[in-house]
Amino acid sequence: PDSPRTRWTKSLLSLLGDQDGAQLFRTFLERDKHVDTLDFWFACNGFRQMDINNTKTLRVAKAIYKRYIENSSVVAKQLKAATKSYIRDVIRRQQIDSAMFDQAQTEIQSSMEDSAYQNFLTSDIYLEYI
C-alpha cells in the first residue's frame, strides 16, 4: 500500500478520505482555530446522505446554518454573501434539498485547498508524522 505521504499529498480529498489523514489534519486545524471549516465540510457530506423526507434532516440543516453560516464564524467569513443568503432563504422557506450546501462546501473546499492544506503539508505535525 502507498505510504501516508503518497496518499495525502495527492489532493485534499485523498487526505480527507483517509482516517489517519483526516484526524491529523483536524489536529492541525485545531491549533489554528480553523477546525470548524473541516467539520462543516464533513457536515455537508453527511447532510447530502440524509433522507430529505425525514424530519431530522430539516433540523440538521438548521443546525448547520446556525452553527456555521448565520454568525461570523470562520466558515461564514469564507463564504460569498450570495451563498449565505441562498441558504438562509432555503431554511426560512423550509424547502430544503440535498444539494443546498453544495456551493458553500465547494467554496470552503477551495479555500482549504489554497491555504490550510498547503500549510498542513509543510507543518511540523505532518513532517513529524511521516
Binding site: Q19, G21, G46
Partner: peptide, 20 residues
C-alpha cells in the same frame, strides 16, 4: 428528542472516513 447539536454531531461523524 435529540438536540440539534447531537444531530449535527452525528451528521459530521457519519461522513468521516472509517478504518483505512
Amino acid at each position: 428528542l435529540e438536540s440539534e447539536d447531537d444531530l449535527l454531531q452525528k451528521c459530521i461523524t457519519s461522513a468521516m472516513p472509517k478504518q483505512n
